[in-house]
Design a protein around this nucleic acid. Sequence first.
RNA 1: GUCCCCAUCGUCUAGCCCGGUUAGGACGUCUCCCUUUCACGGAGAUAACCGGGGUUCGAAUCCCCGUGGGGACGCCA
Length: 456
Amino acid sequence: MSQVRVRFAPSPTGFFHIGSARTALFNWLYARHTGGVFILRIEDTDKERNSEAFLNLIYDSLRWLGMNWDEGPQVGGAFGLYRQSERGAIYTEYLEKLKAAGRTYEKEGAIWFKLIGDRYEVFDEHRKKTVTKVKVAPTVIEDQIRGRVERVEDEDFVIVRSDGNPVFHFVNVVDDIAMKITHVIRGEDHLSNTSKHVELFKAFGAPVPAFAHIPLILKQNGPGKMSKRDQGALIEEYQKRGFLPEALVNFLCLLGWNPKDDREKMAIADVIALFDLPGVNQSNARFDEKKLGHMNMTYLLELPASEFLKRATAYFQTQPAGALALVNPELFREVMLLAQPKIKGFEELPAYTAYFFTEDFVVDPKVKEKIMAKGELKARLAELIAVLPTMDFSSDSAIEEAIKALAAGKGLGFGDYQAVTRLAISGTNAGPSITSMFRVLERERVTARLVRFAVS
RNA sequence: GUCCCCAUCGUCUAGCCCGGUUAGGACGUCUCCCUUUCACGGAGAUAACCGGGGUUCGAAUCCCCGUGGGGACGCCA
């Protein structure tokens, strides 16, 4: 069998979203699984709505997610240019073939594709007008995911606009022929277009590629498929929020596909080895950001510390909090080491670590009220302040021993000092162990914070 | 309105093709354990075969009809 050639064919008319990314991913996975070629083709025939910014967003997002293309813009390939706006000559050439075969006619300045069969008129309820229908044999689609699907394409359709620009159905098929695409993997919303496309392939006398229509991703809340306007729909947003791309990809793999066993966190190589079209689900899936968050956490937890630090640094560089946090690289490193096992995603990091980087941190009034309600806690603070000058700050265990010794002398336990101390040095009731906080903040800052809190 | 696709816990899903399972896993939620907080982790709980017919000794699984959900019906892609 000849080599698999698949394409992802987005149009740069809006932000790159989850659904597009998943379509790209399934194409990419299939290409990698079969040792085939993954092609990126830009469908920018709609001059009104295209934008260079959106185009760059497609490139950036694909690369961020790790989906490199074998042929396409920026990388080239043996099949000419990969932006439809640059392929006009090819469309003219193919249009001539259709004209020569008598399969076109002009109406209202546009060029229409002519179906073969008897014509009759009927009133269309949806469009509230009389339309011309054609009696044609049903198109049979042997879909790789859905099985046999039968559809009747019974109306002629426009292939070249009155302004001379070819439309999607036409250029899509022409390019699939010209680029020798073997498998068309796309969203189920295109299933009803497929009969149009098959009619065109046949009119060109070209082999019809295999089709695989993948289920759609439904919005998290409310009815309907996810669109660019929906909450949480944009890839760019997850990138900005500091999600790990490998976690997002892993999550996307599992939306409509699974390894048929209980594995969820999977190396992409394992997904590639197992991925196949018949294994893709037929039903739509609802996007669940909570589960994505969990997946992200599992990846974060397993990241080598050096890698975590590298990525956390990059994340902070995009954040307002970064200016303060990155002043002292050694302190930043220590704080990140403490934070890694505690957070679910980078977006929690600035708030979670803020008090390490400034004395001007916020004390949560509700937390304060709750903790101080236990009474006589300022005495504990005073006791701690008294031993601070001689306390061994060299390690967590040394600090822990010192506090335990102090507590024991008063007939108390470590826990009696914990909450109020944490509140005094961090303003909150959650975070790394206070011994680690002592070590990282160091004696001077810890002392100042405890004193300040004790007199407040 | 017409055409097409789909249907297992709240969500993602395994099981369906090749009928016999205590219908499994994960997220979420709740409980307990671990514990110097918060997380992590561990143990448990919660919760599903859309409905109705049929075929069959037996149906989540096969067939039909409903219903529900989704999509398409542009000189958008």
